[in-house]
Design a protein around this nucleic acid. Structure first.
Lengths: 232, 232
DNA sequence: CATTATCATTTTGTATACCATCATTCAATG
DNA sequence: CATTGAATGATGGTATACAAAATGATAATG
């Protein structure tokens, strides 16, 4: 097994064009450079990004899988509008998956993986006080990645990665207030605590609470928004 | 709301070419028309399917998302080889998600959705005695769909749909013995029972057992296979 | 003979042009 | 003023081209 310990593997660090286009479009959506519900016309995206239609189309398909855009046959792609109901579903899935993986982490992770998780948590703490949303989002994703790694479940990792696109989107849409992040970090600290104590039940519950914390906040804002929209 | 009651809506029943190509390739993989690990050369697939490269590529990307094929940059697509470790991960995720959704079903489903679930279960029973694997697989997918519908979580549904491709694949690879299905149906009946009694805890546990049942079987076979492969 | 270097072929990744079909817009018409 | 219907624009799909990388075969070298 040459791969496990001292991997000499050279990682191809040059992202393919399609991947870079995907990134650019994803960030554009997350930064609200496009409005929710806006139609994304391929030809226009080609001009704006300066790449071919082939590439743009493939990138859009990927974003469709992530749930950031939706396709209506023969009518085109639209930026997703994520309402309260879909948000609830997303958080439900995330809660269930992430808490289960937290439990697995407690039961399976090595010391090294634990220190990695703690380091990732530190980064979350640091970025949470700053003003860069996306840095905070990336720190959370990294934390999640460490969790999945220690839990030994790459499949779950991929699924949560897909979901995290929409979750970050929700964070942006609901334009979470500053203390929202502080609460989150607080809840996350409890997770870390429980994990360090190797208390699987407590860790699972803390993880559930952590997601619940984000969920209730986002849902409040979304419900208020959709109520206002209904009034008009 | 013109769509809800007397829907004259003409559903675009013509699947797009890309979708049909995806189906064809998926079934080809599931039927082991391609071997696990085999390289899928685009040009060859174009000839075999009679469609353009663009279409084939898009279909392959979809299958990649489903985990049935894997891509190595600039080297191409390969039919997935799903080993014991990945199988464990898949079943873990499925167990966690499906049992949670079973609980939600108990808590949220309407009478109508319950009867739909029971009907789906009947189909599982019927197909389990027959010899058509894929019919059985479809019946299970339909059951899962009813479950998600009643649980009110379309997001979870989509995720499990993605996973189900690989699960069906695992069933094929492990060429499950006939009484394996009987055991499964037995375990599934317990789920139905618990759901009918509206016992959320019991239903969740029964659902977990049901998946566990499939998982242990598949893992046994896979471990034996990979042990044999290691000997050689 | 084993290894290295060279070179031709194949394949992927991307770009471009093209067409048929479906949607949308908007003006003509009654 | 509502309808019809033609012009415009977008998508889904095809064919082709080409650079860069991978693969495979063959020649050169120690």
């Amino acid at each position: 097994m040459a791969t496990s310990t001292s991997s000499l593997r050279v990682v191809p660090n040059t992202l393919s064009l399609r991947e870079r286009v995907t990134q650019v479009l994803r960030e554009a959506i997350l930064n609200l450079h496009f409005e929710p519900g806006e139609k994304l016309v391929e030809r226009r995206l080609c001009e704006e990004t300066g790449v071919s239609r082939t590439c743009v189309r493939e990138a859009l398909r990927h974003l469709e899988a992530e749930g950031l855009v939706r396709r209506t046959p023969t009518r085109g792609m639209f930026v997703s509008e994520i309402g309260p109901d879909e948000a609830r579903q997303i958080y439900e899935v995330r809660s269930v998956l992430e808490s289960a993986m937290t439990r697995q982490f407690v039961e399976r992770a090595t010391e090294k993986q634990l220190t990695a998780l703690i380091a990732a948590f530190r980064r979350v703490e640091v970025t949470s006080s700053g003003k860069d949303y996306l840095a905070y989002a990336r720190a959370l994703e990294k934390f999640s990645a460490c969790l999945m790694e220690g839990a030994g479940n790459e499949v779950a990792h991929q699924i949560l990665d897909m979901l995290s696109a929409r979750i970050t989107y929700l964070r942006t849409i609901t334009a979470r207030a500053a203390n929202g992040e502080q609460d989150s970090v607080l809840a996350l600290r409890k997770v870390i605590k429980a994990v360090q104590q190797r208390d699987a039940d407590l860790a699972e519950q803390a993880s559930r609470d952590f997601v619940q914390n984000s969920a209730t906040f986002a849902l409040q804002v979304l419900l208020k928004n959709s109520a206002e929209a209904a009034e008009r």
